[in-house]
Amino acid sequence: MISKEKQKVLDYFAKGRNFYKLMEFEKAKEEFAKALAIDPEDGPSKVYYARCLHYIKNPPPDDWDGVFVMTTK
C-alpha cells in the first residue's frame, strides 16, 4: 500500500505530465514543484521540473512530439 504522501506526489506528477504534454510548461512546473515540496528527492519530478524550466526559456516547435532532446552529456 502506498502512503498518502506518496499518493499526493504521484497525483501531482500525473497532473504535471498532462500539462507538459499539452506544452503548458508553467502549469506543469507548478505541479512538479508541489510534488517536490512533499518529496524533494522524487527523481521523475526533478527531471520534468528541469525540463519545464528549459522549455519555458526555449519553447519547442509547434509540432513537438514530446521528446526531450539532450544537448549535453
Rank of each mutant, 00 (worst) to 15 (best):
32 F>D: 14
57 K>R: 11
14 A>F: 12
19 F>S: 13
13 F>S: 05
49 Y>N: 10
5 E>A: 14
53 L>D: 15
3 S>K: 07
34 K>H: 12
54 H>N: 11
24 E>K: 10
58 N>I: 06
46 K>A: 05
27 K>N: 14
41 E>P: 04
48 Y>H: 08
40 P>C: 07
17 R>T: 11
5 E>Q: 06
26 E>R: 15
1 M>K: 15
67 V>G: 00
28 A>C: 11
24 E>M: 13
64 W>M: 01
72 T>D: 15
10 L>A: 01
5 E>D: 13
70 M>S: 15
58 N>A: 03
21 K>S: 12
22 L>I: 00
27 K>A: 09
32 F>P: 11
44 P>M: 00
47 V>G: 09
27 K>L: 09
27 K>F: 08
35 A>I: 05
25 F>H: 04
47 V>D: 14
29 K>H: 14
11 D>C: 08
12 Y>G: 05
68 F>E: 07
12 Y>R: 13
67 V>R: 01
20 Y>I: 02
39 D>C: 10
38 I>S: 08
33 A>T: 13
53 L>E: 15
18 N>V: 14
45 S>I: 02
50 A>G: 10
71 T>Q: 12
49 Y>P: 06
72 T>G: 10
52 C>L: 03
66 G>W: 05
52 C>Y: 09
27 K>R: 05
62 D>Q: 03
56 I>Q: 07
32 F>R: 05
27 K>H: 07
48 Y>V: 02
9 V>L: 02
23 M>A: 13
18 N>F: 14
12 Y>I: 08
43 G>Y: 12
31 E>A: 03
19 F>V: 06
37 A>F: 12
5 E>H: 05
64 W>S: 00
17 R>Q: 13
10 L>C: 03
60 P>S: 02
27 K>V: 09
62 D>T: 13
68 F>R: 00
26 E>W: 13
18 N>I: 09
35 A>T: 03
30 E>Q: 14
34 K>E: 06
47 V>K: 07
27 K>I: 02
12 Y>F: 11
60 P>R: 00
3 S>L: 06
30 E>W: 07
50 A>D: 13
64 W>G: 01
68 F>C: 06
47 V>W: 11
15 K>Q: 14
39 D>A: 10
65 D>R: 04
26 E>Y: 12
14 A>P: 00
1 M>T: 12
56 I>L: 07
56 I>K: 08
2 I>G: 13
64 W>Y: 03
34 K>N: 15
63 D>P: 02
56 I>P: 07
5 E>L: 10
54 H>S: 04
28 A>T: 09
32 F>N: 08
52 C>K: 11
10 L>F: 04
8 K>N: 15
52 C>I: 04
70 M>N: 01
19 F>Q: 06
20 Y>S: 03
18 N>Q: 15
51 R>P: 05
23 M>I: 08
47 V>E: 06
20 Y>V: 01
13 F>R: 00
14 A>H: 11
37 A>H: 15
35 A>R: 04
22 L>Q: 11
23 M>D: 02
53 L>A: 15
8 K>D: 10
47 V>F: 13
29 K>N: 08
30 E>M: 08
51 R>N: 12
65 D>P: 02
70 M>K: 14
57 K>V: 09
36 L>Q: 07
24 E>I: 09
38 I>Y: 05
15 K>A: 14
66 G>V: 03
53 L>G: 13
44 P>F: 07
7 Q>A: 09
35 A>V: 01
67 V>L: 01
7 Q>R: 07
31 E>D: 08
60 P>N: 00
48 Y>F: 14
33 A>S: 15
65 D>K: 04
57 K>N: 12
